[in-house]
Nucleic acid binder design. Structure first.
Lengths: 117, 117
DNA sequence: GTAATATATGAACACATATTCACATACTGG
DNA sequence: CCAGTATGTGAATATGTGTTCATATATTAC
């Protein structure tokens, strides 16, 4: 056991403050779920393509070099995360981005990744 | 098979452009790895606390309600991602944030999460 | 030296997840 | 209705991941 430290650098009132500022568990879970969506190269690639144009499933698969089924599964996730929207035209389904924040997220993360040695 | 569509809404030159704009595979992988770090409630909680103060492992564990070992394992990941730095003082190790972008990432994602119905 | 404490780490486990395969569904043209 | 095409989906599989447990390491006090 070692949860006894009660770090001397920080006062009890500071601890209370920090604890109080923590978003509630549900918000944290949702945040994590949101980030998780971006934590996969395939989805990141799909999102990149969709950030450039509205595209159908088959073309997304061709561009990303993925199987149609894999793309469809991932698009389902992206739909559930409300990151993409879609439009049906006959048998073809066109997907596009549904969120203005995505580009910002890309940019901030790119900065971090690029800064590394 | 169904990678035959060659979507009529988009020209070949546009396709070439979109393909060319895709970051190389290594960059995409690194981006995904970066986001993946944020895609876990425990790590998100630890990062939140560290965004408020420099804290030792035991206190992080107490604040986050996690075991010491679990915290240590996650801190290792955060170290490898260069998101935290640490400082030893005797047997105590104090961790703190190592990246100015983290707060921006939090904010953008929170906006997205909060916008949902 | 020994005891006590803080942190790190490897193995094991349970669980999540990305892809593939086979097939279902939905729409179109004839 | 039938054939063809585009997309969606469930099951199976392989791989990744977070926690726990036990233990190792490191530092301090005595």
């Amino acid at each position: 056991m070692s949860d006894r430290c009660l770090c001397k650098l920080i006062s009890q009132s500071e601890i209370d403050e920090i604890k109080a500022a923590l978003p509630n568990a549900e918000t944290i879970t949702r945040l994590a779920e949101f980030y998780k969506v971006f934590g996969d190269p395939s989805r990141l690639t799909l999102l990149h393509f969709l950030s450039k144009a509205e595209l159908c499933v088959a073309d997304l698969a061709a561009l990303a070099g993925m199987g149609q089924s894999a793309v469809s599964h991932q698009l389902k996730l992206l739909r559930l995360s409300r990151l993409v929207k879609f439009r049906k035209e006959g048998t073809v389904v066109y997907y596009s981005l549904n969120d203005a924040h995505i580009q910002s997220l890309f940019d901030v993360a790119l900065e971090h990744v690029m800064e590394e040695s």
